[in-house]
Design a protein around this nucleic acid. Structure first.
Lengths: 327, 327
DNA sequence: GATAAATGTGTAACCGGTTCCAGATAAAGG
DNA sequence: CCTTTATCTGGAACCGGTTACACATTTATC
């Protein structure tokens, strides 16, 4: 039905092999022949069938991307970074949301392999990493890390520390740290790092657990001010939770940042738009995605990588949910 | 390298054809043979190569999804609806962000075709629709509509009207309607619908243009209260813009909802978490995505569809950015 | 028990590309 | 001018599945 390479060959009065050579700029092709072929391609509006090509060459222009949940605004930012970079390079993306479920991750991984993807970018937890370790195609970890694989991630330890330092610096005396799911490594790391620093400072620390989702967050946070009525500083495990906390604070009649200061993590787009603006630790999500794509392409092209782990810097973004120095 | 159907055949002592028949439950296969094949598959951990399969059958388990920008939280919700439904059915997604650019849309479309996707779900504007009209594979429009194609979308006219009615009912006397890009059909429709109703009501109406993105929104909205100082009600073209407006109001010292009421559109996840909560017109995004997927699968399976256009209901979600009746 | 119908299985062609190889022609070298 | 080398091109095999078809073997029918 669709126009094939043999149609083009016929139209140009050559063989399929020649057309293939022209298309791929491989082997010899006389200038006149080349022109004839190109004309025929143009005229017939021929587009090579990637499936056929991929079957023989065992490599496609597809790349697999596994993310926990694009409903969490941090991940679309990553995804766009990946996609924009890859598009430039002519690659396309098969995306799968895993909801952190091993089963779904494996499912998508199978799909990727079955479709001859040429590389994979994955944001999955170390505990689920076995399946990734001995794939024959390049894998780059994104946001999460696995010992033996290249990874792009933000500096969680620094981020956690920074958040803790800032909230102390800005005057909080009893800090509640909201801890996300411990399985989610980066989230746990930032927690530990904050916790340690606060502990060293010798102040009162409370810990509260929370989901990372919009629905989970507002629920988890409901007990916060009952459990820890004297808390005057909150470190949230991500910005979604932080916004939920701001809300809860309001509901309980505590003003932000006068009564409680709040610092989030991620710096997703809404963090700037909420009221007051959310002070947070910024992860350069888009850049992380782009960087992961860049590295993956390099590996696909067999380039040797000197550095395997790419730790991108985080940054404290000061907005209205924390006090100004000297307040 | 990977295990092929002929490896399985050898292991089971049969021919490749037989293995294929067993896998696909097509044609005859003796119970004993079937068992032997299944065992071999199990033992070798054989996974059929989708690429080879797709080359012959001309149909894959891939579906193409074109969205404007997953960075806008409305679209991930759609995407998850689509994905979750399709996963159940064994289909996988190639996703592309178009940024509403014709070139990128065409680019992804080509990719889809070249990869033998079996169907396409697209959220693109009617102006760019020519390329979709005579594809040989099923296409379902999502959020946007095109005359001749099946579509799933929310009732924009009702939504626009509803927003206008509510803001009047709740007492605003001079309403500013923020209009998004006119090329984005649903956004324009809701604007027109709101505008008409307000006009009929005979009140003062102002119109302000805005981008739909986070960055664009806060910028566009900066002049609002200077241009229209007496505005006491705002209909935003989407929730992102609405949140930006809430912020701007705060910055200008106008309290929401006492001085200005604000109604958004979409009901994205943060709308519930901002402060005050954003009253808005809810589009059932996730359901829309799922529905589109459902319809696409039906078309892929050659089922006849009675209804082509699926208009899903919208709903007014009352939160803190509007006053209560009787205030 | 002979014939017809239903089962069971393998061979080979096919999907649409790519590439190896061999043969033909053109350019270069002595 | 003849050999060597470089350039150009097509035939055929291949990638890993699916399926049309032929043939063999059971099972059903009378």
């Amino acid at each position: 039905m669709a126009v094939t390479i043999r149609d083009v060959a016929k139209a140009a009065g050559v063989s399929a092999a020649t057309v293939s050579r022209v298309i791929n700029n491989s082997g010899y092709a006389h200038e006149d022949t080349r022109k004839a072929v190109l004309d025929a391609i143009q005229k017939l509006n021929y587009k090579p069938n990637e499936v056929a090509r991929s079957l023989y060459t065992q490599r496609s222009k597809l790349i697999g991307l596994i993310l926990p949940d694009i409903t969490n605004p941090f991940f679309p930012a990553l995804a766009r970074g990946v996609e924009d970079w890859l598009r430039e390079e002519g690659y396309r993306l098969i995306i799968g949301n895993s909801d952190e479920q091993l089963e779904q991750e494996m499912d998508y991984l199978d799909t990727f392999i079955q479709h001859n993807v040429v590389g994979i970018i994955a944001s999955i937890n170390e505990a689920h990493s076995d399946m990734l370790k001995d794939l024959k195609i390049p894998v780059v970890m994104l946001d999460r890390t696995i010992e033996s694989l290249p990874a792009v991630y933000a500096d969680q330890l620094e981020g956690g520390k920074l958040a803790a330092e800032k909230i102390l610096e800005l005057g909080s005396k009893e800090v509640t740290v909201i801890r996300g799911p411990v399985e989610v490594r980066p989230v746990y790391q930032r927690f530990v790092s904050s916790f340690q620093l606060l502990k060293q400072a010798g102040i009162k620390i409370n810990v509260l657990d929370s989901e990372l989702t919009f629905e989970g967050a507002s629920e988890s946070v409901k007990t916060l001010f009952d459990k820890y009525p004297n808390t005057d500083g909150i470190l949230a495990c991500n910005d979604i939770v932080a916004v939920a906390v701001m809300n809860e604070a309001e509901r309980k009649g505590r003003s932000v940042p006068e009564d409680v200061q709040i610092i989030g993590f991620d710096d997703i787009s809404i963090s700037e738009l909420v009221n007051p603006g959310l002070s947070t630790i910024r992860q350069p999500a888009y850049e992380m995605g782009a960087r992961a794509a860049e590295i993956l392409i390099k590996k696909v092209n067999q380039e040797v990588l000197t550095d395997i782990h790419h730790k991108l810097p985080v940054q404290f973004i000061e907005r209205g949910s924390t006090r100004k120095v000297g307040d």
